[in-house]
Simulated assay, not measured.
Amino acid sequence: MDLRGHLDLLLLTALHDLGAAHGYSVIVRLRERSEGAFDLPEGTVYPALHRLERDGLVASEWATVASRRRRVYRLTPDGRATLRAKRREWRVFAAGMGAVIGPTPMEGLT
Rank of each mutant, 00 (worst) to 15 (best):
A99C: 00
L83A: 13
A81Y: 08
R71E: 15
M97C: 11
M106W: 10
A20M: 00
L10M: 12
R91D: 13
F38K: 13
I101P: 07
R91Y: 13
R29H: 09
M1S: 12
L49A: 05
D8N: 07
R54Y: 02
A95W: 09
Y24L: 13
T110Y: 02
E89I: 14
Y24M: 09
A85V: 02
L11F: 07
E107R: 12
G23T: 11
E61T: 02
S67L: 08
R68L: 08
V92Y: 08
A85D: 02
S60F: 01
E107L: 12
S34Y: 03
L49Q: 03
H50E: 14
G43W: 13
L49K: 01
V92M: 06
G98P: 03
P41S: 05
R31P: 05
Y24G: 04
E42N: 09
P41G: 03
G108S: 11
R74V: 08
R87C: 05
I101Q: 06
H6K: 15
A48R: 15
E35C: 11
L109V: 09
H16R: 10
T13V: 04
R88W: 03
D8F: 06
V100Q: 02
A14P: 03
S67K: 07
F93I: 01
S25Y: 00
H22P: 00
V45P: 02
A14N: 04
R87Q: 09
T64R: 01
W90T: 01
Y24E: 08
R91N: 13
G98A: 00
T110W: 04
Y73N: 00
R51Q: 03
G98W: 02
W62Y: 10
M1K: 06
R70E: 11
L18R: 04
F38L: 13
R80K: 09
T110E: 01
E53Y: 06
L57H: 00
T104D: 12
I27D: 09
W62I: 12
G43A: 15
V45E: 04
G96W: 08
A14Y: 05
R88I: 05
R51H: 03
A14E: 07
E53D: 10
T64G: 06
W62D: 15
V100H: 06
E53K: 12
R87N: 04
E32D: 15
A66T: 11
V92K: 12
G36Q: 10
A66H: 12
L10E: 09
M97N: 10
P105I: 05
T110M: 04
A37T: 11
H50V: 14
R71F: 08
D39W: 08
A21L: 05
R70V: 13
F93H: 01
S34K: 03
A21Y: 07
P105T: 01
A14L: 04
R91L: 10
D78N: 12
S67C: 11
T44N: 10
R71Y: 11
K86N: 03
F38V: 14
A85R: 12
E61H: 00
E61K: 00
R4Y: 00
D39S: 13
R88K: 08
Y46R: 12
G19H: 07
T104H: 10
G36P: 14
T82W: 02
A81C: 10
P103L: 08
G102L: 07
I27K: 15
A63Q: 15
A66E: 14
R80S: 14
V65K: 06
